[in-house]
Design a protein around this nucleic acid. Structure first.
Lengths: 406, 406
DNA sequence: GGAAAATGTTCGGATTTCCGAACGCCAGAA
DNA sequence: TTCTGGCGTTCGGAAATCCGAACATTTTCC
């Protein structure tokens, strides 16, 4: 995890503390604006040199407090994520600030590694204005992005391999947009729509000109379409080919369903997108990206993604990869019950208590409760009589009433 | 500011503190459920007597911590607003809880007035003016009604799941009538009438226009009809789809009898109607509704539903759900002997002298037996699996089967 | 207002329930 | 054939439930 390209405002009057944070943040690649007065902080955040991705703010300052700073900002704008650090703060203050929308609150002295983790967690999601959408922040995802950038600069065919829902089509598009052919057309042939695949291939090749042809679903490409494609490529086609396929595409060759020469032509430059289940940090990162985007359109907006939801996302297996994640978040943000997004919103099948088969104990308790209520109704709430009716001792009935909260 | 009509769960083991909060909350007009153990809190919040508007929770409890309670709740449902109170908490804990979605955090000792202010601030906003209950008055039934109203306002497909006799068709109709399509036709395809299902589907689709199509019995839909439906939906059909199915519809997908893509297309918005046996309060409520309606047409009218009849209705299991209840009341009101409706009128098969109240042990055993039979049915008689389903050891299940002669 | 009845609550011990570990049995797979 | 996995059955200890006794407190009824 790095802070490269991020702009962070540090408000801290203490030379030592401020110096060490400043130094460390720059080491991580962030650009840091360090101010030592509340007033300076106000202007540094209100009229920044660069968009502010986050603020690290001490509470006690020579000309005021961090709280005042935060409050002043809130009055005029929606402030960037604030991480407060303080030496002598109290619980009340922490609660007050968090409820006011601060992102985190850490007491001094703290351990620098933990501090950086928490800071990275809360930073405003990248704006992605200039950078195209990325795959993620994990090592694997970065390699994918790096390869995509590298291959975009070249002009050879590319094969993208990965499970469903990992954005293979999006990646193909990104390579095109970063390449010199970006002004020419980007045409996609989807081999999964099996009918008329060959005709679609012919049309696409006619249409693409000097652009990029994306063959989506190389594994399912019909024989005729394969032949057509390879013939065109052999004849020095003017377009660039990007193909995408499932991880197990080699088996298709072994099974005789895919021409080996076609695959090896493409395979010289290959990008493999690892499944989301192998990089949980990307799952949470992606979730946050989606959440921000979706929540912006929500009325009223949610307060955030609860930390439990985050860890559940991290633990889930995501067999449907990014597509599943996106679908679940879409649904969750739309249907959220409370003010925060909880695990049950994202995985409604967990709770829902609905079709889950009840255990013996539950069935038993439900029946007991029901019978007790019935007995109490019949006796007008007389516990002793109800106990007699139910043939249990008064004590037992009392115990059970406690248990069921009656 | 008053708490009139609000239901608050108080989780606090300390007598003095709990007592004073309890007293004060009731003074303000709230109905309070006070529990002293984490486990009790869990059940009091999960299966509440009344919808919970807020929780006041101590952190340190004899059988766990408030944090654990909160976390356990988060896993299965979206928790009501939590206000934590604690004597020896730390800043880290406060920050952690607030970031997990807790609403507030107060340290003891605190001033009661301030506490009340903060509590009032976070309470779940008042339910929108009670639309008259349709499905029932229980928490589960209200949820069904609320979901129906919410989904009626949107325009996506809906899946209604529930046992027979719960009024799935009526609910589908209600969603249509509340929606913007109410002027357009409401057409129902009943897949259970297996002959000509595909033809019926074609006809219905032709007929529905821009209205609502109710696919009744999604689980029994023929392959041809499924294909037809999904093709129509994929082609941007002008109508809205509401499907109804049995609770175990997922098994149909596993068995290969129902197309997964069709189910997941519908399943994004799902309403589950809990069986009547899980909400006895609705059984009596429904009985009263039916009774009123039926009695109005009777000459001479009955004086009412005897309290014994009521408790018998509450205790009955209603395997046929609302439909059975309606049928029995119809019959009972017509054939009633006396001036009041007695249990023997509603359950004539029980014989005259059957108002003997079953003991707790009997009720418990009956419920156990029933649940065991259900589990064994579901697992095709596999004992080990059934035991897992019921969350008991194989030995215990065996013992009980002996006892019940299974 | 006061006695009697009912309720709230705790406690220790008797009883029941529950579980895991065994052991043998049997049917089907390899 | 052996091996495997599910089933029927027993057993001993751990955990829970249940009960009656006891006592304080509250409600009811005279």
């Amino acid at each position: 995890m790095t802070l490269k390209g991020r702009h962070i405002v540090l408000v801290e009057d203490d030379e030592i503390m401020g110096g060490s944070i400043h130094q460390r943040l720059e080491l991580e690649g962030a650009s840091v604006t360090w101010v030592k007065l509340m007033g300076r902080g106000l202007s540094a955040i209100r009229t920044p040199r660069l968009p502010v991705d986050g603020v690290v703010c001490d509470i006690r300052l020579p000309d005021g407090t961090g709280e005042e700073l935060y409050e002043a900002l809130c009055r005029t704008t929606s402030p960037p994520p604030f991480l407060f650090i303080t030496g002598q703060g109290g619980i009340d203050q922490a609660v007050r600030l968090l409820r006011a929308g601060a992102a985190d609150y850490i007491t001094k002295p703290f351990d620098m590694a933990g501090f950086l983790d928490r800071l990275a967690l809360i930073l405003r999601p990248e704006e992605n204005v200039d950078l195209p959408p990325q795959t993620g922040i994990s090592v694997g995802a970065r390699r994918v992005d790096a390869l995509a950038a590298e291959y975009a600069a070249a002009d050879h065919p590319v094969l993208i391999r990965g499970e469903k829902g990992l954005g293979k089509a999006r990646l193909a598009r990104r390579i095109h947009d970063l390449s010199d052919r970006r002004a020419a057309p980007f045409v996609e042939v989807n081999a999964h729509r099996t009918d008329r695949a060959s005709a679609a291939m012919t049309d696409a090749i006619a249409e693409v000109g000097e652009g990029t042809l994306h063959v989506n679903g190389l594994d399912s490409l019909s024989q005729a379409a394969q032949d057509h494609l390879i013939k065109t490529l052999a004849a020095d086609a003017p377009f660039r080919t990007i193909a995408s396929a499932w991880p197990a595409v080699d088996e298709r060759v072994a099974a005789g369903e895919l021409r080996a020469d076609l695959l090896y032509l493409l395979k010289t430059h290959e990008i493999f997108i690892p499944p989301l289940s192998e990089r949980p940090e990307d799952a949470t990162w992606l979730a946050k990206q989606f959440f921000e985007a979706l929540n912006r359109r929500r009325d009223p907006p949610l307060k955030g993604l609860s930390s439990h939801a985050e860890s559940t996302i991290r633990a889930h297996d995501w067999p449907g990869n990014g597509r599943e994640l996106r679908a679940r978040l879409l649904r969750a943000v739309e249907a959220a019950q409370g003010e925060w997004l909880f695990p049950s919103d994202i995985f409604p099948e967990l709770g829902a208590e609905s079709d889950r088969f009840s255990t013996l104990a539950e069935a038993r308790d439900a029946a007991e409760r029901q019978q007790i209520v019935a007995a109490l109704t019949r006796t007008d709430g007389h516990i002793l009589e109800a106990a007699k009716l139910l043939k249990v001792s008064r004590t037992t009935l009392w115990e059970k009433m406690q248990k069921f909260g009656l």
